[in-house]
Design a protein around this nucleic acid. Structure first.
Lengths: 137, 137
DNA sequence: CTTGACCTTCCAGTCTCTGGAACCTCCATC
DNA sequence: GATGGAGGTTCCAGAGACTGGAAGGTCAAG
């Protein structure tokens, strides 16, 4: 099948498939007489694997490792688990950052009356003018 | 003061200050005889403002809007609040994405014994082999 | 034979910096 | 006055993960 069909069936856009090939995440595809890329069910499986891993937020580099482990019949499941656990920790770090930002923002938004008047605690806090929140504890 | 001092006092790295100037987030700095950038306390305040807004996760484009509002004495605080609320919503979207990923990952990791043996539910799920989770509900 | 959908390659842009190379300037010391 | 080193200057490239567009080739249907 050509790249468009592979894209439709895997959920990975054609442009992204070419990109994955260019960075070596997937091997160079077979070609037809007219120089069109030609994919089979095996390639499709790989694309779907990649798609699922990316949706779980794995970086492309990690997807590459996962693919290698997937193709290694003698792999240790511990290696996969370590990768996944590392990724969970990364997610936790990002969520904690977002939570901190959100807390501060919500606090500021609550104190801002948000009407036509110009005085605004949000800008004041960003400017560090008031000094009222420089030492919160 | 020169860029290094401004960087130290604002918390924005010198390279980043130059970058902000290059994209027009801050105006072109004054120059000394030797072509060094020269900053005053006003510039410093702006850099600190930017730094705080960035730490709250505002995109540079939004920081630009916030700066404009900050400098506009007749602004409506409602405009600032709208920006902040939009940003909170964006944070909520990202957190929800992360939560979803995390849920799936934790579930998979729990089912993977993670030892030297090669069978691994994480890879099976990514490959879509088992089919046991294709229709979760 | 023409049309239109699809494919090809390559270059540029997104976003927010960050590193490095090559060179210039300032200040202190000898 | 020479020298050394810590700053500064510019510009180019790379990160990550694509995405858009231009210019042109291929294929199947009408």
């Amino acid at each position: 099948m050509n790249i468009g069909t592979a894209a439709a069936r895997s959920g990975v856009p054609a442009k992204t498939i070419r990109y994955y090939e260019s960075i070596g995440l997937i091997p160079r595809a077979a070609r037809t007489g007219g120089n069109y890329r030609d994919y089979d069910d095996n390639d499709l499986q790989t694309l779907r694997f990649i798609q699922r891993a990316r949706r779980l937020g794995f970086a492309v580099k990690d997807v590459s490792s996962l693919l290698a482990l997937w193709h290694d019949r003698g792999r240790a499941s511990g290696d996969v688990k370590r990768l996944a656990n590392g990724h969970i920790e990364e997610i936790d770090r990002r969520m904690e950052e977002l939570r901190t930002m959100r807390r501060t923002l919500v606090h500021l938004v609550e104190r801002c009356h948000g009407d036509h008047r110009p005085d605004c605690p949000i800008l004041e806090e960003l400017a560090g003018e008031g000094g009222c929140h420089k030492e919160p504890h």
